[in-house]
Computed example of a mutant assay.
Amino acid sequence: MRQRWSKQTILDAAVELLSASDGDEFFSMRKLAAELGTDSSSLYRHFRNRSELMLAIVDHVLIQAMHGYRREGPWRARLVDLILRSWDAYAALPQLARDASHYPGSGPGSQLVIEETLQALTDAGVPEDLVPEWYHRLVTLSVSLITAHAAGRSRSPAEQQQRRENFRVITLGAEPADFPALARYSSRLAPVGFSRESFLATVELVLDAVPARS
């Protein structure tokens, strides 16, 4: 008799499969079914298609990322905590992060992140009519940088090396007479990339601009 997998088991297996992937393998329901030792029909009992599955995976990941979160401390520290929880969760799942903008989540995990972000902005004293705007700014920034980081990680070592070499040629080969600033700083420039530290530094710059009253 064919085993019927629970939604929780399927999502756990999906996260494990995504974690093991190097970022450039296409995640599919067929691969997930094979990982579970079954066929795709077992998954379609819970998810109508890949998009619905991906939305559920995102929400599952966010629930795990929010484990232990407490609405305590200053608003800014809470926002940093929320944003870094998302960064750390997606950092382990580059393939999922690469598509983060397409799959915003569809359940309580996503609702919890949105709720706590809005609450932190409200507690900061941001005018009520500006809270949605600042929520969207923070989410757009975070998702964009998380996606860019994931895209970089999904390149093969050879592709990454070629990218660095191309950048070196472009910058170090600049004519000082035509590009004086580029020539001046070329030896200290590197291809765009984001570490956790640079991600946080960028977020802090945006938080500096939040129209907080407390």
Results as ranks from 00 to 15, higher is better:
Trp134Cys: 03
Glu16Asp: 15
Ala92Lys: 01
Ser144Arg: 02
Pro94His: 03
Pro104Ala: 10
Arg45Ser: 11
Lys31Gly: 11
Pro108Asn: 14
Ala100Ile: 04
Ile83Ala: 10
Glu72Cys: 07
Tyr69Cys: 11
Leu205Phe: 10
Met29His: 07
Arg153Met: 07
Ala100His: 07
Arg30His: 10
Pro132Asn: 01
Leu96Asn: 03
Glu16Leu: 10
Thr38Leu: 11
Leu18Tyr: 03
Leu200Ser: 06
Ser21Asn: 06
Asp88Phe: 02
Arg30Met: 08
Gly23Ser: 02
Pro176Cys: 05
Thr140Leu: 13
Ala92Thr: 05
Ala91Ser: 13
Ala56Lys: 02
Leu62Phe: 04
Tyr185Gly: 07
Ala14Thr: 06
Glu16Phe: 05
Leu32Glu: 08
Gly173Pro: 06
Ser198Asp: 08
Leu200His: 13
Val169Gln: 09
Leu18His: 01
Glu165Leu: 03
Gln119Thr: 08
Gln162Val: 07
Glu52Leu: 14
Arg184Lys: 15
Pro211Tyr: 10
Arg45Ala: 15
Ala92Asp: 05
Glu133Met: 14
Ala150Trp: 05
Val80Ala: 13
His136Lys: 10
Ala91Tyr: 13
Val131Lys: 03
Ala89Leu: 11
Ala33Val: 07
Ala183Phe: 00
Phe179Cys: 15
Ala89Thr: 14
Ala97Lys: 09
Leu189Ser: 07
Gln160Asn: 14
Leu17Cys: 04
Pro176Val: 08
Glu52Met: 13
Leu121Asp: 01
Leu118Cys: 12
Ser101Ile: 09
Glu72Asp: 06
Pro132Leu: 00
Asp178Tyr: 02
Leu55Ser: 13
Arg48Glu: 15
Asp129Tyr: 12
Leu32Asn: 06
Ala34Lys: 15
Pro127Thr: 09
Ala209Lys: 15
Ser42Cys: 13
Gly109Pro: 00
Glu165Met: 02
Trp87Ile: 03
Gly107Val: 02
Arg4Pro: 01
Ala56Gly: 04
Leu121Ala: 01
Pro176Met: 01
Arg70Gln: 12
Thr38Arg: 14
Asn166His: 06
